[in-house]
Amino acid sequence: MKKIALFIILILSAFSFAQKKSAPNEKTEKLTLYKTHAHASYYNDKFNGKRTASGRKFNNSKFTAAHKKFPFGTKLKITNEKNNKSVIVEVIDRGPYSKRREIDLTKKAFIKIASNKGSGSLKVKIEVLTN
């Protein structure tokens, strides 16, 4: 009976280790600078539930973004240059469709890094996460 219990504990701990190892970790991933002083804004709530260019449904309470060039699924670290707060987002949509804006963030991602919660845009640093 002790051997069976020990075996189960061993399997569960191995499974737990495998899950932790496979989870994305910013410290083990490489950051490549893409752009500084980029203009970021956020999506309006009216887009909630609508399909993005990637086919996924948009949700303003997730950590996703729209960019004109990055492939869908690309992970980006977005840092507010004013307060140095950052967030990791996944590109799931195309846009923004304004020449002066570089990236659109979900409202949740934007608010997490914003100094002034009432502002509509930020100057950010964009870095690409790669393995």
Score class of each variant (00 low, 15 high):
Ala53Lys: 01
Asn84Tyr: 08
Ala38Pro: 10
Phe17Glu: 08
Glu26Tyr: 13
Glu127Asn: 05
Leu129Gln: 12
Lys108Phe: 02
Ser61Ile: 02
Thr64Cys: 03
Thr79His: 05
Leu31Cys: 11
Asn131Pro: 10
Lys108Glu: 10
Glu90Met: 01
Ala53Tyr: 00
Lys82Met: 03
His37Tyr: 10
Phe63Thr: 00
Pro96Trp: 02
Gly73Gln: 12
Lys112Asn: 09
Ile11Phe: 11
Phe70Val: 08
Ala23Cys: 01
Ile111Gly: 03
Ile103Met: 04
Ile11Trp: 05
Thr28Phe: 05
Asn83Glu: 02
Leu105Ala: 07
Thr28Arg: 11
Lys20Asp: 12
Leu105Lys: 04
Lys50Asp: 05
Asp45Gln: 15
Lys112His: 10
Ala5Met: 09
Arg101Cys: 14
Leu10Ala: 15
Arg101Gln: 11
Thr130Gln: 13
Arg56Glu: 15
Phe72Trp: 06
Ile78Pro: 06
Ile111Glu: 13
Lys77Ala: 14
Glu90Gln: 04
Arg56Ala: 14
Asp45Cys: 09
Lys27Glu: 15
Ser16Lys: 01
Lys107Trp: 06
Lys35Ala: 08
Asn116Arg: 14
Pro96Asn: 04
Asp104Ala: 03
His67Glu: 05
Lys3Asp: 12
Phe7Gln: 13
Ile78Lys: 03
Gly49Ile: 10
Lys112Gln: 12
Leu129Cys: 06
Thr36Lys: 09
Leu129Gly: 11
Lys30Arg: 13
Thr106Leu: 00
Asn25Met: 03
Ile126Asp: 00
Leu122Cys: 03
Ala40Gly: 04
Tyr97Ser: 13
Ala109Ser: 07
Ser86Gln: 02
Asn59His: 08
Gly118Met: 06
Lys107Pro: 05
Ile88Lys: 04
Phe72Cys: 14
Ile8Leu: 15
Asn131Tyr: 07
Glu102Cys: 13
Ile92Leu: 06
Ile113Cys: 07
Asn44Arg: 15
Leu76His: 13
Ile111Ala: 13
Gly73Met: 06
Asp45Ala: 15
Asn59Pro: 03
Lys27Ile: 14
Tyr97Ile: 15
Asn44Pro: 15
Ile78Ala: 04
Thr28Asn: 13
Lys3Pro: 06
Ile4Gly: 09
Val124Arg: 00
Gln19Ile: 09
Glu127Leu: 01
Lys77Trp: 10
Lys68Asp: 12
Ala40Met: 02
Lys125Glu: 06
Ala109Gly: 05
Lys85Arg: 03
Asn83His: 02
Ile4Met: 09
Arg94Ser: 09
Ser22Gln: 00
Phe17Val: 07
Tyr42Asn: 01
Arg51His: 12
Phe47Pro: 09
Tyr43Ala: 08
Leu10Phe: 14
Ile4Asp: 05
Thr28Cys: 08
Gly120Ser: 13
Leu33Cys: 06
Ile111Trp: 04
Ile9Tyr: 07
Met1Tyr: 15
Gln19Asn: 08
Lys125Met: 04
Ser22Val: 00
Ile126Met: 00
Ile11Cys: 15
Lys2Asn: 14
Lys123Thr: 13
Lys35Leu: 01
Lys30His: 13
Asn83Ser: 05
Lys3Gly: 08
Phe7Trp: 12
Gly95Ala: 09
Asn116His: 14
Tyr42Glu: 06
Ala18Val: 03
Ile103Pro: 06
Phe15Arg: 07
Ile11Asn: 08
Tyr97Asp: 12
Asn83Gly: 01
Ile92Cys: 07
Ser61Phe: 01
Lys112Thr: 10
Val87Glu: 02
Lys21Trp: 11
Lys85Ser: 02
Pro71Leu: 01
Asn60Gly: 08
Asn48Met: 12
Pro96Cys: 14
Lys68Glu: 13
Glu26Phe: 11
Ile92His: 11
